[in-house]
Amino acid sequence: MITLPYLVAGWLFLVGCYGLVTSRNLVHTVACLTVAQSATYVLLLAVGFRAGATAPVFADVPVGTRVVDPVVQALSLTDIVVSATVTAVLLALTVQIYKRHGTVNPDELRALQD
């Protein structure tokens, strides 16, 4: 029973969350969110792994070859696209916050709290 790769995903998620919590710069916050989200790629691909199997592409291996799970790989692709688009929107927000408030330190953004 090997669970280490799953635990790596949990660790990545927590490291990303720690960065989110302690961040002093919104660009850094966005990067930490990406780290936390990359935990899901690791988890998905770990779930789909099959020992000694190859990629689920039958261009140069005969049909019937043992391959890893293609469903979770497709899910990871969706995951990556969503992650990239969310990052773009958040960075655009950060640009506008800097223009409006002259700071990207979340603790100095008092206007959001009032």
Partner: peptide, 19 residues
Amino acid sequence: AQGLPSFGSEFHPYGDRAV
């Protein structure tokens, strides 16, 4: 994580059907 199938196992019912 202890409840998941072991890493690298042969148990991939959806994957097998998709292939």
